[in-house]
Amino acid sequence: MKILLGKVLINYPYFAAVILFAIGSATVLTRSNLFKKLIGINIMESAIFLMFIAAGSRRDGVVPILHMDDSLRPYINPLPSALMLTGIVVSVSVTAFALALIVRLYRFYGTTDAKRMSDIRNGVAKE
């Protein structure tokens, strides 16, 4: 038990990432409001960014810029951070595109709820 707790405490960013990922994907799959689905997607992507950045970081690491710190302390791995910047750009563009689609759907159906939309399409409910 003690060993397990120690492992959790040392690797806490990964556990946080797993929890966030679960929250995000559950939101995407169970909520019928399109905005909530989109927020779930964003939470899920943040979880993966967290996991990546945690993989590159280290305790007492310094910023990996040459002239800022001349002491020979170990620096963090800059590659995951750089990659995640790209990942954030990608997630921003996905979010923007999804928002534009939601606006289009809202103008037609007058709702952002997926269930109501399919009801309207099948003629069950009135607009």
Binding site: V28, M51, A55, A98, L105
Partner: peptide, 26 residues
């Protein structure tokens, strides 16, 4: 609206998939 709805569903599921792919790469 049908195209927008199909595209939205595709986008959400595909983004879920790319999240998993990125996790695998990590």
């Amino acid at each position: 609206p049908n195209a927008a709805k199909a595209a939205f569903n595709y986008l959400i599921l595909a983004t879920l998939g790319s999240g998993l792919i990125l996790g695998g790469i990590g």
